[in-house]
Amino acid sequence: MKKLYFICLIMIVHVEYLTAQEDHLTKTFALPSNNYKVNDTSTIEPLTKPVKVVSIIDQKSETFKRELEVWNAFLGSVDLQNIGFIFLVRPLVDLDRFKKHWFEEMQMNYPFFYDQSNKIFVTNSISEAKPGHTMVLDKNNEVIEEGGKVINTDPFNLYRSTLHNLTTEMGIKKAVRGEITEMKDGVLKTFYNSAPIYVTEDGTLIPSKLAKDYIISRRFIMQTSPLSDTVRLMNNNRR
């Protein structure tokens, strides 16, 4: 009886080990073909880029409009020559109505992918329980980072940091503009990928040295955006 018990215990441990190993295996994402691409006037070809971001767009989500607003800003802060965005839209609505909303109402000057047969989602085992799910793929289309909606701060910072590090390793410089926020050795660090541009409240350019003097003296406070290299100095001495 004891022998049988130990055999069962060893088998359970072995299965758990194999499961843990599978969890650490790198997943390769099966990209959609260009047949599924829905375009407007853009000539961008996301599938050909060396680095890709795949995001599931669920138009039934309560935060759908806000997500598109953030993605639109995100697109303007990265090098689209080297980073491609593959927006997979769940086939749950009328395509013509969605095209009008995407291109005209939300002014997304970027294609999306629409598969009426749902094949892309089935092939990649993407369930409906993952609205807003996003993945960053390397040049081999292997998933190196994944998480939730970009409207949440942690995923937003994580995707930008991952894209910055991945493109830097590939020799692509300054592919992500604005502030990069990432966790290093348990410490949260924020830095600019390139030297920021300092301007006054009315947009006048200020030399970097003078701007830093203003900041140190606390005469001005910095107004920044994580999507831009521009730092606006706001007068801190108003009465």
Rank of each mutant, 00 (worst) to 15 (best):
N157S: 09
V78Q: 01
E105H: 12
Y159C: 02
E105M: 10
A73F: 10
F121Q: 10
D79H: 02
T162N: 02
T162R: 05
L80F: 04
F74K: 02
W71L: 03
L80H: 07
A73I: 09
P131S: 05
E104G: 08
Q116L: 11
V78R: 04
K130R: 14
R90Y: 11
T63C: 06
M135Y: 10
S127I: 11
N118S: 15
P111F: 00
T134E: 07
E128H: 14
P111M: 03
K100I: 08
K100E: 11
V70W: 06
N141Q: 12
K130E: 09
N118E: 15
E146R: 08
E67Q: 06
A129W: 14
F113A: 04
K139M: 11
K65Y: 13
L68K: 00
L68Q: 01
I151E: 05
E62I: 12
F64K: 06
L137E: 00
T123W: 10
K130F: 09
Q107I: 08
F98Q: 02
P91Q: 05
L88G: 01
F113N: 05
K60L: 13
Y159E: 03
K139A: 14
W71P: 01
D138H: 08
S61Q: 10
D115G: 07
F98C: 04
F98P: 04
T162S: 07
G84L: 00
T134W: 05
S77C: 05
F64E: 05
I86L: 07
I126K: 09
D96R: 14
N157M: 05
S77E: 07
K139L: 10
I151C: 04
E67W: 03
H101N: 13
W71Y: 14
S161K: 09
K52T: 02
L95E: 11
F121K: 09
T134D: 06
L163G: 00
L68N: 01
L75Y: 10
R66A: 13
V122K: 15
G84Y: 00
R97Y: 12
P155L: 08
E146H: 10
L95N: 08
V78I: 13
N141W: 08
T153E: 12
I83A: 00
N124E: 10
G147D: 06
V53P: 02
T123M: 12
N140I: 08
F74P: 03
N82Q: 09
I120P: 07
R90K: 14
K130V: 07
A129H: 13
K119T: 13
Q81D: 14
V93W: 15
M106V: 07
V93D: 15
T123H: 12
Y159T: 04
D138A: 12
F103H: 03
E105C: 11
V136N: 02
F74A: 00
Q107L: 14
V143Y: 01
F113E: 03
K60W: 10
I86Q: 00
W71R: 01
I151D: 03
E105D: 15
V150T: 08
S127Q: 13
R66S: 14
Y110T: 01
N82K: 06
